[in-house]
């Protein structure tokens, strides 16, 4: 969390994350260059750079896309999610080297402007096997640039979380373009089916993880439709089902609600973090505040307000306890409205 913007708020975790990330990038680069020079010593330096950066960037993109659903399926992956934007910016820089070298190699020093040549040299747009695949990579690079350039929280706050999130969902369009860039480019040259196997395996892993995370969420939402209703309140669970300092989530009447148990009390807030729409109900009470599992944004459970000097506010909900059952009123209060917590009877 931050009030003033700094380029990066470093801590030991972030430093470690970046060290391992760049160690991994240089390790991958060294392995690729080593294997190429060993098995194909005739390769030119330009081809080596273009292929190495392509492999590393595409591999990083797969890792970036896998982290989201993996963190939804297993919270142990959350440390990878926290600094995912560092992965994204690094991936863009590597993809940029690939793009620049390719444009210089294949289009510069000719009779046409190099950028214009990307779009005009090969115009077989109607033939799949001859499709000008470089244009697909060019547009993917533009999307990756927009995402990297707006990755800082400054842009998140100024664009609003919804617009920012929508913009950053562009990563899936970029992935689709790059999938086709590889399929209609390099794989039209290489004649071994093993490369199709690798490309399709990558797609299968990414789509399966998203599907599994989606199924998990859908099951939770469907289960919530069978809850008992009375006097505007909805029965959620037995009080013992909510662990101390944790939450139970419920999705009713279009409201995504997290009910937290802390200090012998229960409070309910909107289950979506104001920062990057993280699942607050998977967070914890830390230092008396609800703490988002994604990036650690905090809110007071009674009124949904971030502790001063922060200004984010959540919708709040009425909660009551009847016969050790937790009931919640899904009609939301204004963001930041204090709601008296329901008190648990001491055992």
């Amino acid at each position: 969390m931050s009030v003033n913007y700094t380029s990066v708020q470093w801590n030991n975790q972030k430093k470690g994350y970046d060290k391992i990330l760049w160690l991994g990038i240089f390790f991958t680069l060294a392995c690729f260059v080593g294997f190429q020079l060993w098995l194909h010593p005739e390769i030119t330096a330009e081809t080596l750079i273009i292929r190495a950066t392509a492999i590393i960037a595409f591999l990083l993109l797969h890792i970036i896309l896998a982290i989201g659903p993996l963190a939804r399926l297993n919270t142990k992956f959350l440390p990878l999610l926290y600094n995912r934007r560092h992965l994204g910016v690094s991936m863009f820089l590597i993809a940029l080297i690939h793009g620049l070298f390719s444009i210089i190699q294949f289009h510069a020093l000719g009779d046409t402007n190099a950028i214009v040549s990307v779009f005009t040299s090969n115009q077989n747009y109607q033939a799949i096997s001859e499709f000008p695949f470089q244009t697909l990579g060019f547009f993917a690079l533009i999307i990756l640039f927009l995402m990297a350039a707006t990755s800082h929280d400054f842009w998140l706050n100024n664009l609003s979380p919804r617009i920012w999130k929508t913009l950053h969902m562009g990563v899936y369009i970029a992935y689709g373009l790059l999938f086709l860039h590889v399929a209609l480019g390099a794989l039209q040259y290489e004649d071994q089916p093993v490369y199709w196997g690798i490309l399709i395996s990558g797609f299968t892993v990414i789509s399966s993880l998203h599907l599994m995370a989606g199924i998990k969420e859908t099951r939770r939402l469907q289960k919530d439709q069978t809850l008992l209703r009375e006097g505007g309140f909805i029965e959620v669970c037995h009080t013992s089902e909510i662990p101390e300092d944790c939450a139970k989530t419920v999705f009713v009447e279009g409201e995504n609600i997290a009910i937290f148990k802390y200090d012998g009390k229960l409070s309910a807030v909107h289950n979506v973090c104001k920062h990057q729409m993280g699942p607050l109900g998977e967070g914890r009470i830390v230092d008396g505040c609800i703490t988002c599992p994604w990036h650690g944004y905090q809110y007071k459970p009674e009124d949904g307000q971030a502790p001063p000097p922060f200004t984010e506010k959540l919708k709040t909900y009425e909660v009551k306890i009847l016969d050790e059952k937790v009931w919640v009123n899904p009609v939301p209060k204004e963001e930041g409205t204090f709601v008296e917590p329901a008190k648990l009877e001491k055992a």
């Binding site: 294949f106 040299s121 039209q188």
Partner: peptide
């Protein structure tokens, strides 16, 4: 000058070269 200097990957470059 290039490796590979043929096929789909090199197509755009070959077009530029012949055009030049």
């Amino acid at each position: 000058v290039m490796k590979p200097g043929e096929g789909k990957i090199h197509k755009s470059c070959a077009i530029r070269c012949l055009s030049g």
